[in-house]
Design a protein around this nucleic acid. Structure first.
Lengths: 137, 137
DNA sequence: GCTTGCTCCTCAAGCTACTTGAGGAGCTAC
DNA sequence: GTAGCTCCTCAAGTAGCTTGAGGAGCAAGC
């Protein structure tokens, strides 16, 4: 029961996924359809848990599903070498870096903008607030 | 033609939106339905361009559509004061900041991970690559 | 043996903010 | 007149799930 015939709920608890997410991963083919008990319920074992943890970790790292398919291929040794995994990681890193830089700029802009809405605004119509005027630029 | 009866294409060019996006904004009610010419085509004027620029700027700043509705209420002076706009901006700033910090952590993790896949990996099966093992953790 | 409450099942739709495509028509220039 | 652009509407697709409906099993307590 600890491993051979875990329910989807047990598997979810061990992998920080929800049951719905696990079914979804099965549906899109990240997880092969698992065996069913006599009652028609899915039964999970160690290999599935391992695979789910891998997927979950990748998602936590923000890898898109398609990247995860490729990373799983490496884990399953279906890929010729692990270089593809490193390449994917580096590409993904670049995406994250670019987005981080965008957000930094955004943060500065928003900070500046928020500061332009001051007590002076209260005396004037809302539509003349410097913040609103700025947004219309 | 310069202002009174701009086509959707003209409006798009002046606001960095696409025609499809403008139609979408109309559909979801950010933009009131605009007048049509005899041929059934939408005709845009200055107020619509102004509004579109406002919306576009907000989207560039990553404000969600629902926030933009509220910000438009302020611009239209339908809101009691501009304080709601400042609050929205500060809340959004906090969201951006939180996400930026997440991405920084992600960046560090990915950088470290990528570095673990080295020349040594080539000699071993791909599934034993330190990067892959790390992902399975 | 029955009820209560949890979990499980499937299938469909909803979320965000658009984009893409099909199918059809008008407008402009040569 | 015709080629090539833009415009129209409506429907579906994108990413990665989540939520809900409708129905059934299972385990514990009475």
């Amino acid at each position: 029961m600890a491993s051979a015939g875990m329910t989807i709920g047990d598997a979810a608890a061990r992998t920080q996924c929800t049951p719905a997410t696990i079914r979804y991963y099965e549906e899109i083919g990240l997880l092969r359809p698992v065996g069913r008990g006599a009652n028609g319920r899915r039964a999970y074992g160690h290999p599935e848990i391992h695979r789910l943890r891998f997927i979950r970790r990748c998602r936590d790292l923000n890898f898109p599903i398609d990247d995860i398919r490729s990373l799983l291929d490496v884990m399953d040794a279906r890929a010729p070498s692990c270089l593809s995994a490193r390449d994917l990681t580096l590409q993904h890193l670049e995406t994250v870096r670019a987005r981080r830089i965008e957000l930094e700029a955004l943060e500065r802009t928003l900070k500046t903008m928020a500061a332009t809405c001051t007590d002076a605004c209260v005396a004037r119509p809302a539509s003349q607030c410097a913040l609103i005027v700025d947004l219309a630029t």
